[in-house]
Design a protein around this nucleic acid. Structure first.
Lengths: 127, 127
DNA sequence: CATGCAGTACGATTAAACTCGTACATAGGA
DNA sequence: TCCTATGTACGAGTTTAATCGTACTGCATG
């Protein structure tokens, strides 16, 4: 049954070195709004993106193509931007690529437990 | 500052007697979807409704007027219906009134920690 | 039985979001 | 230098949601 509650997964907190490109514009920690974050996470595709980042990401950020999402490029730009502007992810420009990671520390500080729910999410059949 | 994280509030679980009217149509526990619930909670007015139910409700359900929301009646109907259809609240018909309460046990079982975030939410200045 | 009250149902308007095609910008390699 | 790969910007079409006026239902009370 799909209603089973998974065990709490381990979410890695990736420390940030100092010599990284500046992040793209994003809300400050103290400006994060629960309703905005929930709105950003209320889309299955974006939930998928965040969950994959939480569960499968390495020590470095991940570019848009890493996710293997079968959508036009402009659609992906739209959703990654929505996540960043809501404060869920941070994006940095590495040459041509724009790489993302989840703002785990910030979100845990403001909305403890939220990322656990995302990590435990079961995607719908049609995704 | 508004970024302060509140202490975890106590959320009462209201037991349900047996002799109540049938609930209005709602999704079963196992059909609750995180993305749908988050979507329902991504609206400030609805977040306000749920939070007030969590923090201030008595042992009985509460009718629409109890919330003191300054909106047209038809708007309130819309939002209460949205919450119910997402599975956040349960509504029962008591004669003329339709009373609501949060499905605390169901939501805690499927999305542990979520209601704590709602209870700790700080409403925006303009509300 | 008429009035008031709680709330729904319906429909129109407006605003926002999703989706995606196309054109464009840039870095790196042959 | 030209080509390719990554990804953005812009704009249009479509869909979804919010807002709210109006009309309506049903109970309760005088």
């Amino acid at each position: 049954m799909s209603a089973t509650v998974r065990e709490a997964p381990v979410i890695k907190v990736v420390p940030e070195p100092d010599d990284l490109p500046e992040p793209l514009p994003e809300p400050a920690v103290e400006d994060l709004r629960l309703e905005t974050v929930l709105g950003a996470l209320s889309d299955p595709l974006r939930l998928r993106i965040v969950q994959k980042l939480l569960l499968e990401s390495e020590a470095f950020d991940h570019s848009c193509g890493w996710f293997g999402l079968d959508r036009p490029k402009s659609s992906l730009t739209h959703h990654f931007k929505a996540l960043r502007e809501a404060g869920v992810t941070r994006q940095r420009q590495y040459g041509l690529e724009r790489r993302s990671h989840v703002r785990v520390a910030d979100l845990d500080a403001r909305f403890p437990g939220l990322l656990g729910l995302v990590a435990a999410w079961t995607p719908p059949d049609t995704a």
